[in-house]
Structure formats: structure tokens, C-alpha cells
């Protein structure tokens, strides 16, 4: 390249690449806006069955059941306005998975309206609540979550 303004050309090329990356990222992120769901959002506007999403809420007390195969559990995740989503999960429950506590489930809704979880992200530290679940204070389960939290004081 014999161009006199090579630096300018380089800067422009780098800018194009960076702006392109950012635009691509923003475009992809807009689709991510419907990645995290609260139970009431699933009731109001359910995602497509099979679409990978996260569901966050409180595990309903008394809803945890182990199925006969020994590895599958079902429970319900509740949110505001009495919304309630049944969840099925095959696997070992996380160490701090407790009824009445917060959970984030990764998985997908099946056609029957049950959320099939591949992964459960429960708080793994006694002081940790998934951030998505913070500020659900008007929801009664949040108080129970705090009761299960062992404070340092």
C-alpha cells in the first residue's frame, strides 16, 4: 500500500471492525432480552417451546417431589401474582437447593407447559441470592429466603 495516509486507513478499518462487532453484539443481545424469565412473565408471554431460557423464582414450599426413577425431581417455581410454573429436573440437586429459597433454572418450556431444566443455579454460598431474584420483596417467599440465609452478625 503506497497510500499516504496509511494510519488513517488502519484506523478506519479498525473502527469498522469494532463498530461491526458492537452492532453484531447489540443485535444478538436484543434477542437475549427474552432469555431470563420470571414466573409471571412466562404466564403472561410464554417463550416458544424448546427455546433455551432461564427461569428465576422461589421454590414453592412443599412442592418438591422425587420420582420413582430416583434421579428426576419435580417442583414448582412461584413468582408474583400467584404465578406458578411446574419444573422438572433430572440430576443431583445443588448443595443449597432448599424449598422456599431462590433458584434460577436453565432449560426450556415443553409443549405441556412444564419447564424442563438442564441446570439449576441455586445460591451456593449461604450469603448469595441470584441477583435476578433480588428486589422481589413484596413476594412472601423472599422473606423465607432471608430466613434461610445465615447472616454473619
Amino acid at each position: 500500500m503506497k497510500a499516504k495516509h496509511q494510519r488513517l486507513v488502519l484506523v478506519v478499518l479498525a473502527l469498522i471492525a469494532l463498530v461491526g462487532a458492537s452492532l453484531l453484539a447489540v443485535y444478538a443481545l436484543r434477542n437475549q432480552a427474552n432469555y431470563f424469565y420470571l414466573p409471571e412473565q412466562i404466564v403472561a408471554e410464554p417463550p416458544e417451546p424448546g427455546q433455551a431460557v432461564r427461569l428465576g423464582g422461589m421454590v414453592e414450599a412443599g412442592s418438591l417431589q422425587k420420582l420413582a426413577d430416583g434421579v428426576t425431581v419435580t417442583f414448582a417455581v412461584t413468582g408474583r401474582d400467584n404465578s406458578r410454573i411446574p419444573v422438572r429436573y433430572a440430576g443431583i440437586l445443588p448443595d443449597l437447593f432448599v424449598e422456599g429459597s431462590g433458584v434460577v433454572a436453565e432449560g426450556r418450556l415443553n409443549s405441556g407447559g412444564t419447564f424442563v431444566a438442564d441446570n439449576l443455579l441455586a445460591k451456593h454460598d449461604e450469603n448469595y441470592v441470584p441477583r435476578e431474584l433480588e428486589g422481589m420483596s413484596e413476594h412472601q417467599a423472599a422473606e423465607m429466603a432471608e430466613d434461610t440465609t445465615v447472616g454473619l452478625e
Partner: peptide, 10 residues
Amino acid sequence: DIRVSVGPPY
């Protein structure tokens, strides 16, 4: 006031 989590699909 929109809660989003961005994961591997992105």
C-alpha cells in the same frame, strides 16, 4: 428495569 441474563447462546 428489565432483568436479563446473557449466557452461552450469545
